[in-house]
Each structure stands twice: as structure tokens, then as C-alpha cells.
Design a protein around this nucleic acid. Structure first.
Lengths: 243, 243
DNA sequence: AGAAACTGCGAACATCGATCGCAGTTATGG
DNA sequence: CCATAACTGCGATCGATGTTCGCAGTTTCT
């Protein structure tokens, strides 16, 4: 057997197991000083403040008052940490809200609550979207979403994919949202400047027109309203059984 | 003045310029051995073969037969390289296909062609989605997409955002697509195994049902057909002016 | 009581992106 | 025509990262 460490699964011969299927603690040794939940909580705090790129194993270890090597007693690697963090903030989404029965309305409401989490934790849209990053709270989330589609006549695969698509859209919206930190205004201004410059310089009449139209018409619509309207349309399109 | 290097813009006081706004070559020194286009081409080849994570400055330099430091004569950093690569493969999309006049159909067709590029270059969905990663070919792409919506009565901002959303969806679909390399079958199987195990073990009846339904009904629909159908619905939803 | 399984962690390794400075090369201006 | 400025390639190197190894100490099981 190649088992070397219960918590990290350091050498599980070729078969990488997910964090959630590895026991957090053994029963033999001394009591652990920290816990996965604590790791996740502190990591989320750091990421909230300095962004995901600034979250390194060392910094997390320092914030926990220990050395980098110690973290690997709780986690097999950085990936596991991202799993933990993602699931932790997923737990902030209220899943006790009763379903009204209209799938489109229910999923739109859920998307709005998901959006709130993204706004609270901007690093969330920077987490590399693994094909299956689902912890316990993620599973609850998925269950809730699929339950909202109980009356929809669609194959199971279509439903799960619909949830993935909706989440991808929420992340995309969150990315566009202006982030408060790191004076992103300069960057944004520079970027936008380049866009209009390039659009007008090159031969891109439609683009230029769209950008000009954008500058003229002041957005009287809240971003949240725009989000909700768009989301309702997309979800409606996704669930429609019209061929 | 803080100018130190024309090509990389190494120290442009606080104002980071995009790659595309920096001249590729000065007029004074000796002829450059390589070019941005060559960098991009080789980088794309490497990423196609080994994935984006395996593409480091050093490896690219080695593939070019030079040292890592030399790359910074053509590019300000890894970000610039990603810009170059993204724009290069964007250029593979045919933008000469005539528009039929139906925005939904035209955009769906464009999305299909974009999907083909993603399948050809799986690393594309791993490129961190910067808010504005648009090179010359990207601008042409955007122009084409907006032109397809010429008759749609929507504010400019809505149109550009619609394109971004569609692209996000294409990327999401590409992520789900089984990748040929690195024996991802094992990972996928392990992941899927965990999903059904967790869904049935915990209290997730709807999820379990959806997964079971998925396993039973063999997918008689091509992934491409599923993609096209979904895309048409979503785009239709996005462009509908119904309140 | 001894073995087994665990814990924290200092030290170290490989790799990464990026910078600096220098020798050599080319164009420009007086 | 030549000195100067601007440029190129690149070896050496820096700081930071994720991760591993081995050891001393601790707790539980048999």
C-alpha cells in the first residue's frame, strides 16, 4: 500500500481522490491544531482582501501562525484549498427559500442570490472552473436547482448542464462588474480607451457605433436589473421545450 | 521619461499599455531573430500538445532555441503572450461567411465556428478571461458579431455584452467536452464516481434522479447538436425584445 | 509496554516569471 | 565619416511559488 498520509492522500496510487472523500482526521495522533474549515475561513478572508492571486500557501500559513509545510496535513495541495473555499462561500447561499413553482422565476432568484456571493467574494470568478468542483454545499445547491426544475420535461443531463451554464453566466457578469479594490479604474480606463481607439482607427463601424451608443445613453437600468432581465431570458430559453 | 524598452514597454510609468498598442520593433538596432507572430505560433503548438499549464516562458524559449530572457524583447510578460495566442487562434474563425439576416441564426453559426476553435485548441478555455483581451482579430470578430445584430433594437452595451456572454457559454461547453490528451478518462471517471456516490449517499433525490436518467437514456443527440440547440435558445432569449 | 498512526514543522528542491547589465549591432545626426 | 543613441540577444540572478522529506514528539490501539 502506498498510503502515507490520511488527510492529504499524498500517494494514493494513481487514483486521486477528491478532498471530500478523504477523512479530515485520523484517530491515532495528537489533536490537530487547525481544521479544514478554519483553513477555508482564513483563506476566504485573505482572498476577499487581497485577491486570489495574492493567496499563497505561505501567506495562508503565516496568517494561521504556522509554516507552509503544516498546511499539507489538512490539504493535498492548492487545488483542495480552492475546493474548500468555493464550497465555503457556496454555503452562504440561502437554500431554504421556498420554490414558487415557476422554474424560470425560481432559478432566476437563485441566480440573483449566487450573484450576491460573487459580489461579496470577487475572487470567486477567478477560481479556475474545474469540471467538477462540488463539495457538500455545492451538492445541496445543485439539488435545490434541479428540484426547481422538477416539472420541466428535460433529460437529466440537460438540467445539470443548464445549472452549469447559468453559473458560468453569473461568473461572467461578476467579472464585468467593477471591482472595488486595487484601483482597477486606471486599468479599466486604459483598456476602454484602447477599445474605442482601435475601433475607430480600424475599419469597425458597427463596433464604433455600439460603443458610441453606449457612451451616449446613460444606463438608467441598474446592473442588477440588467442581470435579472438577462438571466430570466436566458433561463427561459434554456428550459423552453419548443423545438 | 521612464522608457526603457520599446517592445516590452518595461517601465511605462503607471500606464500599462496593451501589447497591440506597442510597436513590435524599433528602427535602430539589429534585425530581430524572431517575431511576435512566431512566438504566438510556437506557443500555440506547445499549448496544443501539452496544455496551457505546461507552457512556461522557459519551455517556449527552449522551443525557439533561445534563452528565457530573450522573450522579453518581444513581449512584456506572460499575459502578453496569452493575448497573442488568443488572438492568433481567433484568426482561425471564418469571418467571410455571409450573414443571412437572421441574427439568432447568424450568431449561432458563429458560435459553432468558435466552438470548433475551442475543440482544436483545448487550452483556450483555460486562458484566464481578462475583461478585455481583444487583439486585431478579436476586434474583427466583435465587429462581425455586432454587425450580425444590426437590425436588433438593443443598446450598444447590450450587444457587446451579449457577445461576451455567448463566448463564455462556448468556453463552458468546451470545458465539459472530453479532452483527448493526458488520459483524462480516469479523472473523469473518478469525478463522476464521486458525484453519484455523494448524490445517493447524501439526501439528494432530485440530483440522483437526474444522474440516473442521464445514465439510462443513451444520448442519441450529438454534443454538437445539443450545443447548437442550446445556443439557439439562449441567443434567442438574449435578443428578444419582449419585456 | 510496545508498535502503529498520526502531528507540527524546519529545511530543502524544482520551477516559475521577471530583471539587470553587458557585449555586440544597426541606424541616425552632425 | 564617425560618434552617439537606440536597439538586440542573453548569461546570471533574484524573489516567490507549490510541494516533499525527514525527524522529533504525541496519542491511540493491541
Amino acid at each position: 500500500m502506498l498510503w502515507r498520509n490520511r488527510a492529504t492522500g499524498g500517494a494514493v496510487d494513481e487514483e486521486h481522490v477528491v478532498v471530500w472523500e478523504r477523512p479530515e482526521r485520523g484517530a491515532r495522533g495528537p489533536a490537530a491544531v487547525h481544521s479544514r474549515a478554519e483553513l477555508a475561513a482564513v483563506a476566504v478572508t485573505l482572498a476577499d482582501r487581497d485577491g486570489l492571486a495574492a493567496l499563497s500557501m505561505r501567506r495562508l500559513a503565516t496568517a494561521l501562525g504556522t509554516g507552509p509545510a503544516s498546511l499539507y496535513r489538512y490539504v493535498a495541495g492548492r487545488e483542495d484549498l480552492l475546493d474548500l473555499m468555493t464550497d465555503a462561500v457556496t454555503g452562504e447561499i440561502d437554500l431554504d427559500a421556498p420554490l414558487g413553482g415557476d422554474p424560470v422565476a425560481d432559478l432566476t432568484a437563485l441566480a440573483l442570490r449566487t450573484r450576491a456571493v460573487h459580489l461579496r467574494h470577487p475572487w470567486l470568478s477567478d477560481v479556475p472552473p474545474e469540471p467538477l468542483r462540488l463539495g457538500p454545499r455545492g451538492l445541496d445547491y445543485l439539488e435545490y436547482a434541479i428540484r426547481a426544475m422538477a416539472d420541466v420535461e428535460l433529460p437529466g443531463r440537460a438540467k445539470t448542464e443548464a445549472v452549469a451554464l447559468v453559473n458560468a453566466l453569473v461568473a461572467q457578469f461578476a467579472r464585468v462588474e467593477p471591482r472595488d479594490g486595487d484601483g482597477g479604474d486606471d486599468r479599466r480606463a486604459a483598456r476602454a480607451g484602447y477599445l474605442v481607439r482601435a475601433a475607430t482607427a480600424g475599419n469597425h463601424p458597427h463596433l464604433a457605433a455600439a460603443l458610441a451608443d453606449d457612451a451616449d445613453v446613460s444606463p438608467r437600468e441598474t446592473t442588477e436589473e440588467l442581470f435579472e432581465r438577462t438571466m430570466r431570458r436566458v433561463i427561459g430559453g434554456l428550459l423552453s421545450d419548443t423545438r
